[in-house]
Design a protein around this nucleic acid. Structure first.
Ligand SMILES: [Mn+2]
Ligand SMILES: [Mn+2]
Ligand SMILES: [Mn+2]
Ligand SMILES: [Mn+2]
Lengths: 218, 218
DNA sequence: ATTTATTTTTAGACTAATCTAAATATTTTA
DNA sequence: TAAAATATTTAGATTAGTCTAAAAATAAAT
């Protein structure tokens, strides 16, 4: 049996592994989970005894096949619950994550699969992140950073890089939500800010920081 | 903050308190939760330090007002999730309890209240047990044991006393489910078994043990 | 009213998960 | 490449929750 705490460590390592190919350092995990580095070392030793991570002293950790499978399943549950909260209960996209953090730990294969069907087998969660299927396969999609588009190019918002409530609420204010159509009018070298045409009707300027955290498909 | 384990103890004491007015003994809790009596003593001391139970050595425990409030809220969550699993995901009444045991610990006031609305503010769960509202008030209903009806009396099944999967699955086979209409044809003193007319069409004999575990309204 | 049986508490130990402080490795910088 | 800075591990402690075995209290039976 694997504990909720162990699950959280696996998920953290999984998340960090998406951002880099190298083994994940003790400190990276410690920062991600707000625990001490000492605690992380302890846990990595425990997880490697269970063959869920490959760990070598001072060398960091990677997920084993089984660890990876478990982490992917957690991500599946997390994102399906986010869809449930958003689609069925009317929560906003900045509210769903914290509740899903709890719900992802519910153990019942039947529950996950029935939930998936109940929700219409969604392929993406409310933040545009892909939902792995029962076999752990993610839907892949070409997506670019909004900041990388050139003048006059058009994109549709399909995801976010940042997931903080503050950022998501700010996007609501800017009306830069999933599905929004964005055309690049001009890019200003001075501070990297970008003038866009939003949904073919409204021009506005967004900062580079915002544009660096939005994914679009073209 | 209260832990999941503490929540389970509160719920156990709450459940046992429904069956008797006296303080709940250490052994009763230990039996209910499958833990040692020593563990229960430890926990009762901890819970009484948090003013969630009133506990005196060798005298058993009762819930404080706050403990009772928390336990009722857990029951509310448990039964709402059972309705969700039954109504929305198509689980059977013998499957919902175990999953709800996990889901009842999810912490979010908003979630509970939105779920309640989503489900149409149900007053009873799939076993016919009343669901407390947000203020902790239960819908009360006159209900009798099927075994207590007299010859020719009619009742509608509205609940069960036993909640074991074995019993619930057996009731499915007998078609003695919630809503079934039952008329007493004859009661046999020899072994207490009862001949009933089910849904105005089928006669069958049920054991006293079954009749003692079914609630009907008349 | 003693003795016997049962219940409950205490004593002591264990595991999971966490922390701080100190020791040791690794990496960076000069 | 030696010194300084940073990262990681070890040592030792703490808390929640659990257990078994022994001691003490309560209840039941003779
Ligand atoms: Mn999330
Ligand atoms: Mn998400
Ligand atoms: Mn139940
Ligand atoms: Mn129920």
């Amino acid at each position: 049996m694997i504990s909720q705490t162990e699950e959280n460590y696996l998920k953290a390592i999984f998340k960090l592994s998406e951002q880099s190919d190298k083994p994940i350092s003790t400190n990276a995990v410690s920062k991600e989970l707000n625990t001490s580095a000492a605690s992380v070392t302890d846990m990595l030793i425990r997880l490697s005894k269970k063959d869920l991570v490959n760990y070598a002293k001072y060398k960091g950790a990677t997920l084993s096949d089984e660890g990876s499978r478990l982490a992917t399943h957690l991500v599946r549950k997390h994102r399906l619950w986010e869809v449930f909260l958003y689609d069925k209960l009317g929560f906003t996209w900045d509210e769903v994550h914290d509740i899903a953090e709890q719900m992802e730990h519910i153990r019942s294969e039947q529950l996950v699969d029935r939930l998936d069907d109940f929700l219409g087998n969604p392929k993406f969660d409310p933040h545009g992140d892909p939902i792995p299927d029962a076999d752990g396969n993610f839907a892949q999609r070409q997506q670019y950073l909004l900041a990388s588009l050139n003048n006059s190019e058009v994109g549709v918002v399909v995801g976010v890089q940042e997931h903080s409530s503050a950022f998501l609420q700010y996007l609501d204010k800017l009306e830069l939500v999933l599905g929004a159509k964005v055309q690049i009018i001009d890019k200003y070298d001075y501070d990297g800010s970008i003038k866009i045409l939003l949904n073919e009707e409204k021009e506005q300027i967004i900062t580079n920081k915002v544009a660096q955290n939005i994914f679009v498909k073209t």
